[in-house]
Write a protein that binds this DNA or RNA. Structure first.
Lengths: 338, 338
DNA sequence: CCCTGGCACTCTTCGCACGCGAGTGCCAGA
DNA sequence: TCTGGCACTCGCGTGCGAAGAGTGCCAGGG
C-alpha cells in the first residue's frame, strides 16, 4: 500500500504533466506544490511509484511521466469530477436549446463537447432499442410495393421499402395500418415482436403473405437498425496531440472512421456514471494512446445512448469528466422536452 | 509563349515532384526523362519557367517545385484524365452495387473514393432541387398534428411536423393526400409551387388554414432543405500530407468540419466535367494548400449533386480526376436503377 | 541563334565533438 | 524516516567542417 504522501506525489505529477506536457522532475515538483518535503524525499517516493508501475521515465535521467496505470489510480482515487461553473452551465443550456430537430440536437451536442473539452467528441444517436414507437405508417408506392415509416418518441424516423408477394388492396392497407398502430404505438421496441406475432391471422389468406413481410421488415428495422448511427466532431483537436504526431494520429483517425469500432467502444462502458478508459484499456489498438471518457444520456431516467470524447491519455480528467457529464445531463433534458 | 520543350520540362517537374515529394533538379530531370538535351539547357528552361511563375525554389540552390500556377497549366494543357482500368471499373461497380439504400450508396461512395485516390473524399447527398417527387404522405399523429413525409426519386426521405390551426378530419386528410399526390407525384421540385397554389380553394373553409399550413411546410421542405447534407471520409489520408504536418493539417480538418464551407466549395464548381481547384484558387483560407477535384453526378443526364476529393496540391491529377469521374459515373448508374 | 560543357558559388544537410543542465541514485548523518 | 550532498548519466543545443546537390553564368561549337 502506498502512503498518503506518495499518492499526493502521484497526483502532483499527473497535474503537472497534463499542464506542461513535459516529464516532471523532483525539484520542479517541490517548487510548484508545497509538499513540505525535500526533493530527495520526493525522489525516493518516485522510485517507489515507478517500482509499482504508476510512473515511468522516457529515458534515464529525465523526469517522470504517468503510465496508464498511474492515470487509472489518479482517476479512481485521487481526483473527483470537476463540476461546471454556473456560467458554463448556462452556456450549455442556451446552446442546446436552439436545436430544431434530432439531427440538430446531436450536431450541436458534438460541437459543444468538442469545444468544451477541446477534444474529439462522439455522440451516438438515441438508440431505437430502449425508446418507444410513436407511430408506424404504411404507404402504397405501387400495387405491390409499400413503404414502411417508423417514427420514434425521440423524433427519429426510419423508412424501409417492402416488396409484397401479392398486390395489397387499399382497404387491407388501412386495416393493417390501424391494427398495427393500435398495438404498438407507445410501446417499447423490445416489446413489439410479442405484440404483433399473431397479426397475420386476422387477415384474409391472400393478404397474409404481405402482412408477414411487412411485419418482418418492421422487426428487422427494430433489430438490425440497431446498427446505431453516431456523429463525431472536433477532429481538428487531434493536432494538439503531441510532438510525435503523425504516428499517433493516423490510427486514431482511422478508428474514428470505423463507426463499428466507436459503437463498440461506447457500448463497452456499462457504468451508470461517467466511464473512463485509459490507453491500453481500450480494446482497439489504434486507440491505445488515447483515453475515452463516456457516459450514457437519455430523456427519462434511463440511458438511451452514449456520448463522450476521445483524447490523449494526457488529458485533464476531472474537467473532461465534468464537461461530459454536464452535457449529457442537458441533452437528456432537451430530449425529454421535445 | 513557352516553347514545346519548356512545357515538357514543366510536365516532367510536376510528375517527378508528385512522385518523390522532393524538389527536382536539372540533372535528375535529364536522367529520368529523356528530353534529349543537357542539364544546362534544362536549367535555362527552368529559369524561364521560374521567371513566369510556374515553378519556384524553396531556397536558393535547391531544386524546383511547381507553383499553383504551374499545376494549373499542367492540368489544363499538359495532362489528360487517366481512365480507370477495366478491373478497377469492375471493382467500383461491384462495390457500389451492394448498397441497400441511399445512405448506403453515399457511404460506399465515400469509402470508395477515399480508397481509390488515397485522399479525403466528399460526397454530397443528391439534391432535392433537381429531383422529382415520388410520393407525399400525410399522417395524423394527433387531431391537430400531422406529419408530412416527402419521398424523392433518389430515395431520399424528409419528414416534417405540421401543427394545424384547427383539427383536421380523417376524410379531409385522405382527400388532401390524394389531391396532393395526383398533382405533384413525378413532378420536379421546382414545379411544385405552381402546381399546388390553388389547392386550398378545393376545401371547406374550416380546413383551408390547415391545407395552407401543410402546403407551406411542403414548400419549405423543398427550398430550405436545400441546406444539403454531405458525407466525408478518408481523413486518415491527411497524414500523408507532408512533413510540415500540424500546421497544414489543422486548418484542413477545421474546414472539413464546416459543412457550409464544403458545400460552397463543391457548389462553386459549375463545369460540366471534372473541376479542379488548385491551392489558392480555393476561396477558403484553410484549403489554400490543398486542391479540390470535383464533379457533378446524377441519375439521369443531369447532375443532382457533386462529389470530389480534397488533397495536397502535390497530387496525381490525372489519376485522381479519372477516379473521381469514374466513381461519379457509376454512382449515377446506381441511382438511376433504384 | 540555340545548345553544351565547364566552373565557381551558394546553401542545406549531416556527422561529430563539446559543454551545459536537469535529473537521478545512493549514502551518510540527523 | 527524512535530508543534504555528491557523483553520474543522458538528452539537447551549439558550432564547425565536409559533402553534396543544385544553380547561374560564360565561352565555345554546331
Amino acid at each position: 500500500m502506498l502512503s498518503e504522501r506518495r499518492l499526493q506525489v502521484l497526483r502532483a505529477i499527473v497535474q503537472d504533466y497534463v499542464g506542461t506536457e513535459e516529464p516532471v522532475g523532483s525539484k520542479a515538483l517541490t517548487e510548484r506544490h508545497n509538499l513540505g518535503v525535500s526533493p530527495a524525499t520526493v525522489r525516493n517516493d518516485m522510485a517507489a511509484l515507478e517500482e509499482e508501475g504508476f510512473i515511468a521515465q522516457p529515458h534515464t535521467s529525465a523526469g517522470r511521466i504517468p503510465t496508464d496505470k498511474g492515470y487509472r489510480l489518479f482517476v479512481d482515487k485521487l481526483a473527483g469530477v470537476k463540476p461546471m461553473s454556473p456560467p458554463e452551465r448556462r452556456a450549455i443550456q442556451n446552446f442546446l436549446e436552439g436545436a430544431v430537430d434530432l439531427d440538430d440536437v446531436v450536431a450541436r451536442t458534438v460541437r459543444l463537447l468538442a469545444q468544451l473539452t477541446r477534444q474529439v467528441a462522439v455522440v451516438q444517436y438515441p438508440s431505437l432499442t430502449r425508446s418507444t414507437v410513436r407511430h408506424v405508417e404504411l404507404l402504397a408506392l405501387a400495387p405491390a410495393r409499400l413503404m414502411l415509416v417508423l417514427i420514434t418518441d425521440t423524433g427519429r424516423v426510419e423508412q424501409r421499402m417492402v416488396d409484397c408477394p401479392a398486390p395489397f388492396g387499399e382497404a387491407s392497407l388501412a386495416d393493417l395500418r390501424a391494427r398495427l398502430n393500435s398495438r404498438v404505438a407507445g410501446r417499447r421496441f423490445t416489446d413489439v415482436p410479442g405484440l404483433v406475432e399473431d397479426l397475420p391471422e386476422a387477415f384474409e389468406a391472400d393478404d397474409r403473405g404481405t402482412v408477414s413481410t411487412v411485419l418482418s421488415t418492421l422487426l428487422e428495422t427494430l433489430v438490425e437498425e440497431n446498427e446505431e448511427r453516431l456523429m463525431i466532431g472536433g477532429t481538428a483537436n487531434l493536432t494538439r496531440f503531441g510532438h510525435d504526431f503523425p504516428l499517433t494520429i493516423r490510427p486514431v483517425l482511422e478508428a474514428l472512421e470505423e463507426q463499428v469500432v466507436l459503437l463498440k467502444l461506447l457500448g463497452e462502458a456499462q457504468d451508470p456514471g461517467v466511464t473512463v478508459r485509459i490507453g491500453h484499456e481500450n480494446a482497439h489498438e489504434g486507440l491505445n494512446s488515447t483515453s475515452v471518457v463516456s457516459v450514457g444520456y437519455g430523456s427519462g431516467g434511463e440511458a438511451v445512448a452514449k456520448l463522450g470524447v476521445v483524447g490523449p491519455t494526457r488529458m485533464d480528467y476531472p474537467g473532461t469528466m465534468g464537461a461530459v457529464r454536464a452535457v449529457a445531463r442537458y441533452v437528456g433534458q432537451i430530449l425529454a422536452e421535445s
